[in-house]
Structures are given as C-alpha cells and as structure tokens.
Simulated assay, not measured.
Amino acid sequence: MKINLENWSNRLLYLLIATDLLFIALHIIYKTTELISDTSFSISKDRGYPEVFQYVKAYWVALLFLRLAIKKHTFLYLAWSLLFVYLLLDDFLEIHETGGNYISKQLDFPSLFNLRPEDLGELAISIVASLFFLLLIAIGYRLSDSIARQSSRYMIGLLFILAFFGIVMDMLHIMSRALSIEILEDFIALVEDGGEHLVMSVIAWYVFLLFETSPLGNQMFKNYWRKKPSRMGSKRP
C-alpha cells in the first residue's frame, strides 16, 4: 500500500501508533527488567507518561469535535465533544473511581465474582455515564445530516471497542487478582491499557480525518501545501 505523506491524518496516525508502541515497550522493560525503575513509565500508572499522552489525545479529539460542531452547526458533533471532555476529566480526576466508592458505601453493594463493592460502584458509574452520552448522541443523530450520521456510526463502533478495553478488560483484570498469578494479572493489565491507547489513537486519527476532509480543514491544508513550494523555491539562487 502506498503511503501518502501529504495526508496529515495518516502522518498523525503513524506518529500516534509509534508513540503508543514505544510506551508499551517501555512498560514491558519496566516490568521485566531493572533498566527502568521510574514507575511513571508504567502504562498502568495514574498520571504516568503514557496516561498523560492519553490525556492529550482525548483533548485533541474533544477540540476537533467542538470545531466541527461550531462550523457545521451540528449538535451531534457537540455531543461527541462533551463525551471526550468527560473521558478526559474522568481519567484525570478519577471520577468513576471516586463516585463508585461513594455509591458502593451508600447503597451497600455486595462483593460479586471477585469484584469488590467499590469495583461494582465504578462499573455502575461507567454504565450510567455511557447511557447518558449515548442518549445525547442519539438525539444529535436524529437531528443531523447523512455525513454526520455516517461518521458517528464509525465512532460508535470505535467507542464500543474502547469500552471493551476500558470496562470489560478492567473488570477482568480486577477479577484475575484473586488467582494470585502475577504474570496473568500483568498480561491482562497490559492488554487493557495497551488496547485503550491504541484505540484512542485510531479515534484521534479518525476525528482528525473528519476535520481534514471537511471544507474548512480541506482549505486550510490546501493553502499550506500551496504555499510550501513557493517558500522552498524562494531559497533557490
């Protein structure tokens, strides 16, 4: 397959995936050797280097969707922007962890399937938040044009894949702790966090592609490439 390096979305995807793979490799080195001792290189570390990179991707996605919502006057894109603002704040402020711990105590959740009450609380918060934003997206979907609807169908598919790694694999990771098999627990944690990173990179690429192919983005990049040869040519004697 021929790689078009003038396609900015492709450039972004290669850089994002390469960075994700680097963080995954550094995590493996951290877990299996003594070459790296700083826990910030762990892909599972809260506010570690890999997670900060996730913040950046979620921030970019939220901004791009907001830009599309403003230029296209589309509530559907605004709903997507709000979702990724929530995901960013949830990761940074640990909303579902704090909220899950609170409601598990208030509602006296039991322990089930090796899941602690606070784990069930976190799951409940994640489900409620997911249903709320899916409702917003469904409302926006009914009010939007065919292009926004089609792009949202792809986004919903990517969102479910992200939820698989972020929710299902997270619960499986917690349940695996009861087996006291460290290598299994570490492997599931790597699949969970590594999967989240890679899927978020694909989401960032796709949203950037939407922006790039929109009239505003298309004109912006055309102007860039139109000016680039003239700048290069001006340096020639």
Rank of each mutant, 00 (worst) to 15 (best):
V61Q: 11
V61E: 06
A62S: 15
A62M: 11
A62W: 05
A62N: 04
L63V: 13
L63Q: 14
L63A: 15
L64R: 00
L64N: 00
L64K: 05
L64P: 01
L64W: 03
L64M: 15
L64C: 03
F65C: 13
F65H: 12
F65L: 14
L66H: 10
R67L: 15
R67D: 13
R67C: 12
L68I: 10
L68H: 02
L68T: 05
I70N: 10
I70Y: 12
I70E: 12
K71T: 15
K71E: 15
K72P: 02
H73Q: 15
H73I: 12
H73N: 15
H73A: 08
T74F: 00
T74Y: 00
T74I: 03
F75Y: 10
F75L: 08
F75C: 00
L76E: 06
L76P: 07
L76N: 04
L76Q: 02
Y77K: 02
Y77M: 01
L78Y: 11
A79H: 07
A79F: 00
A79I: 03
W80S: 01
S81F: 04
S81R: 06
L82W: 13
L83M: 13
F84W: 14
F84M: 11
V85F: 10
V85Q: 03
V85M: 07
V85S: 07
V85T: 08
Y86K: 11
Y86F: 14
Y86S: 06
L87I: 11
L87A: 09
L87F: 08
L87M: 14
L87P: 03
L87C: 04
L88D: 02
L88C: 08
L88S: 08
L89W: 07
L89C: 10
L89F: 12
D90R: 04
D90P: 00
D91T: 09
D91A: 14
D91Y: 12
D91V: 09
F92V: 06
L93K: 00
E94A: 10
E94P: 02
I95D: 07
I95H: 08
I95K: 08
H96M: 06
H96E: 11
H96D: 09
H96N: 12
H96G: 02
E97D: 13
E97V: 07
E97C: 06
T98D: 10
T98C: 00
G99H: 06
G99Q: 09
G99N: 10
G99D: 09
G100I: 03
G100Y: 03
G100M: 00
G100H: 05
G100W: 02
N101Y: 10
N101E: 12
Y102V: 11
I103Q: 01
I103G: 00
I103R: 01
S104W: 01
S104C: 04
S104R: 05
K105C: 01
K105M: 08
K105H: 10
K105W: 01
K105V: 08
K105R: 14
Q106P: 04
Q106K: 13
Q106L: 10
L107V: 11
D108Y: 07
F109D: 00
F109Y: 04
F109P: 05
P110W: 00
P110A: 05
P110F: 05
S111D: 05
S111F: 03
L112G: 06
L112M: 12
F113G: 14
F113N: 15
N114Q: 15
N114R: 13
N114Y: 14
L115N: 07
R116N: 07
R116H: 13
P117T: 01
P117E: 02
P117Y: 01
E118C: 02
D119C: 08
D119Y: 09
D119W: 06
D119L: 01
